[in-house]
Design a protein around this nucleic acid. Structure first.
Lengths: 249, 249
DNA sequence: CGAGGTGTTGAGTCATTTCAAGTAGAGTGG
DNA sequence: CCACTCTACTTGAAATGACTCAACACCTCG
């Protein structure tokens, strides 16, 4: 929505004002950039991973497969996301990280966080808060998978993706959605076949239009009639954040 | 496993050494104590909640219900847990909080965190890390619900509960498990009926013994043969934590 | 033009749910 | 101490939503 050079700064600025110093701290995370092709595995679960990543461009997802191949997609990552916070307390990565499109990632070492932790309690609070927002989205998906029918699950995910993208993109006239139906199914505890049936149905009913890697939700309000959905990216309560004052250098 | 007065300190001490100052900061969170009876709703989703809670005694769970009553249990809370971090960035609570047993909670205001954020980057990192561990447990349950059969889901949850309890209790010869089958089902995306069938089967096969509100898993290794389960509470990688040095008062 | 990835559609199968009835145990009050 | 009540759990039979299997259509890319 804004003209920040960094998607991360753009995303976070939706929720709290960032000081110059905070922006500098964040900029350090994006000093290095690496490119990966589509359908590429960046790392696998169980590997030692010392880096976190800021997503600069492209779509990725984290997933984990059981021995017999059954796969669960855990998170879907968009530009501005920080990938890897959940792996932080572990020696080995929890999940596979795979690209859906060509991608640019900015890797930075775990240690880089300690500067933020030590120098900017306020930025720490913001990162923590956003991490909790993502957890809230996860809770919502848990409920979708655990307690909703196939059609509801799909509607829920589409609304969720749209609401996340709205932080950095215009989605009113459609948006890029480069996830195939197998990935969508694996995110929702469904098969690609069920996803296909639902999406075909939704398109025939006229609630959405699909292109390849592209989706237009005509009216989110109408789609919301098919499922209980809660917006999580609206406002943050920042009242508990520490004040700006802190150690500096 | 240790003789700390506070379950919270006991739990966190499993993962990192706490300085005197850190322990004092944590003690402040437990100054106030309130009691609630079993099967009581502490707060409901959508209410404004300005407090977080440290669990001192008893079992609780967070859940969320759809309009038609379908309910998803999101988290199960034990002594030593901090309840409410996921609600932090929101004005209104995300979930209902209900007790399964008589409970003692220590409420503390959101604002209390800013002292920790400002004064102890290291403790902040620890709390953040533990929050990510809980998120990892959540990911595991997401996979269980999304991609496992009823029997696997139940085995997974039982192993998960046991491994959590091991942080503060002896579980070798059984442990208290005051969750009825409806709650277990709601945590796993199953009905109470399915849970009953699975548990009855497991008991008949001799892998576990049940009492009312009590469970003995004879051999976790044997139970693990029925499901892929990963221990998440083992060690934390604390290498990225900021050093002790920080502002003080 | 062939290959591979992706999506669609139909028919049959199956795990879990739903519905329903019944048992067991804990707590209460007469 | 015995009904009485309530909640939790069990068990069977029938219903069902999603899965599996399989064939086919479409598109992109080399």
């Amino acid at each position: 929505m804004s003209d920040h050079a960094s998607c991360l700064v753009a995303k976070l600025s939706n929720f709290a004002e960032l000081t110059e110093d905070d922006q500098r701290l964040l900029a350090r995370l994006e000093e290095d950039t690496r490119s990966y092709p589509a359908n590429h595995t960046v790392f696998r679960g169980g590997e030692g991973v010392d880096n976190l990543y800021v997503v600069k461009r492209g779509w990725l997802f984290s997933s984990s497969a059981l021995e017999d191949g059954r796969r669960q997609v855990m998170m879907i990552h968009n530009p501005g996301d920080i990938i890897g916070l959940p792996h932080l307390p572990f020696r080995r990565s929890l999940h596979d990280l795979s690209t859906s499109t060509p991608v640019e990632l900015c890797p930075f070492p775990k240690d880089s966080l300690d500067t933020i932790l030590s120098r900017s309690p306020r930025l720490t609070a913001l990162l923590f808060a956003f991490s909790m927002v993502e957890q809230a989205v996860l809770f919502d998906r848990l409920q979708a998978i655990g307690r909703m029918r196939a059609r509801e699950r799909v509607c829920h995910l589409l609304l969720s993706l749209r609401s996340r993208l709205r932080l950095t993109n215009d989605v009113e006239k459609g948006f890029s959605m480069p996830l195939n139906q197998t990935v969508i199914g694996d995110a929702l505890g469904l098969t690609n076949v069920s996803v296909s049936r639902v999406m075909t149905g939704l398109e025939q009913e006229g609630v959405l239009t699909r292109g390849s890697s592209w989706l237009w939700i005509h009216s989110p309000e109408e789609l919301s009639q098919h499922v209980e959905f809660e917006e999580r990216y609206a406002h943050l309560d920042t009242s508990w954040f520490p004040s700006e004052t802190s150690a500096s250098t």
